[in-house]
């Protein structure tokens, strides 16, 4: 029975607001530290790549951004399922709040991918499988954000976006497979952005630290946005009025 009370606590916006407040400073420090250390390490303290020279240093931003863009969508789909099955309000707020963050990381991944492409392959954009899939992921994000904005009623918008994210999550493996297949038809296998950890350890460690830093940053930013959303939606309650009115 302890489990159920925890679960129900999880659904309480006030409980989350209080707990996240305690975590915020820790998140701020760790995300800032890991990001700064990882990026300085990657920029100055790793050897240049044998083939790509110094432009490969973009990897320390491109790879974490790509991972996050995809992971955030998965989290959104999970929140959507939680919302539709257990009707937990906090899940909808999380769903609403994660979408713009995920979209921004998606854009970051696309931009850094494109910028990386120019010195590597001499072109500002290349229709390789990963970049194309990332572009379609951006379409999915835009769809959810647009749908949220177009529906006036908050509860209806919540469930509609939840359905849309679940449909999207089913679509993602299909898209990945199709785009991969399409890509092998039209391009050689030589055009691949180095992502696999078959990298030298000197390059791998700062990359892992950067990924950690980005995840921590995402958690921090999501908490910040979620807290604002809670304040906004619960503005009629006593605890919010007390909190603000001081």
């Amino acid at each position: 029975m302890m489990k159920w009370t925890f679960f129900h606590k999880l659904g309480s916006p006030k409980w989350f607001y209080d707990i996240s407040g305690k975590w915020l400073p820790w998140l701020q420090i760790t995300s800032l530290l890991s990001l700064v250390v990882a990026l300085i390490w990657g920029l100055a303290f790793t050897p240049p790549d044998y083939l790509q020279g110094n432009s490969y240093r973009i990897i320390f931003i491109h790879v974490p951004a790509s991972f996050l863009a995809q992971a955030i969508y998965m989290m959104m789909a999970t929140a959507a399922a939680v919302l539709l099955i257990w009707r937990i309000k906090l899940a909808d707020m999380a769903l609403k709040v994660m979408a713009p963050i995920g979209a921004s990381f998606c854009i970051l991944s696309l931009a850094t991918g494109a910028i990386w492409g120019q010195p590597t392959w001499g072109t500002w954009w290349v229709w390789d499988a990963r970049l194309t899939s990332m572009l379609i992921l951006l379409f999915l994000y835009i769809g959810i954000i647009a749908l949220r904005g177009a529906i006036q009623t908050s509860e209806v918008a919540a469930k509609a976006c939840a359905i849309l994210s679940l449909v999207g999550v089913v679509n993602i493996p299909i898209i990945k497979y199709s785009v991969n297949w399409w890509n092998t038809l039209h391009q050689g296998a030589t055009l691949k952005l180095t992502e696999k950890p078959s990298m030298a350890p000197e390059m791998l460690w700062p990359l892992l630290l950067s990924i950690l830093g980005f995840y921590l940053f995402f958690t921090l930013v999501m908490f910040l946005r979620l807290r604002v959303e809670i304040l906004s939606r619960e503005k009629k309650t006593r605890w919010v009025k007390a909190l603000v009115g001081e």
């Binding site: 990026l39 920029l43 240049p48 020279g53 110094n54 432009s55 240093r57 973009i58 931003i61 491109h62 951004a65 713009p100 963050i101 921004s104 990381f105 854009i107 970051l108 931009a111 850094t112 910028i115 990386w116 120019q118 010195p119 940053f217 930013v221 910040l224 946005r225 807290r227 604002v228 906004s232």
Partner: peptide, 29 residues
């Protein structure tokens, strides 16, 4: 950056913009 400076730094600049956006947006809201 051995001739690749423009690319590396513009990529990191975009990263910084995304970070700033994600920090400022909740603060303003």
């Amino acid at each position: 950056m051995d001739g690749h400076g423009f690319y590396v730094w513009s990529a990191y600049a975009v990263g910084l913009l995304v970070v700033i956006y994600n920090v400022l947006s909740p603060m303003m809201a």
